[in-house]
Amino acid sequence: MKMKNKIKVYRAIHNLTQDALAKELGVTRQTILAIEKGKYDPSLDLAFKISRYFHTTVEDLFSYD
């Protein structure tokens, strides 16, 4: 089962680049890119950090395909 996410959508809403989001979260741009493309599933800690940054919930941001 593959996990999908709405990070790209939320980035667009907040007018953020991958690089800017990565710097805010203390990760690399490649990590944000890999998560968006579904190549890497973030840890629970990072998933919460991302959802808190966008003022949303983990369930809203991440879901199973």
Binding site: G26, V27, T28, Q30, T31, Y40, P42, D45, L46
Partner: peptide, 9 residues
Amino acid sequence: IVQDERSIL
């Protein structure tokens, strides 16, 4: 050098 959870993995 930025080392995050993905690079550690």
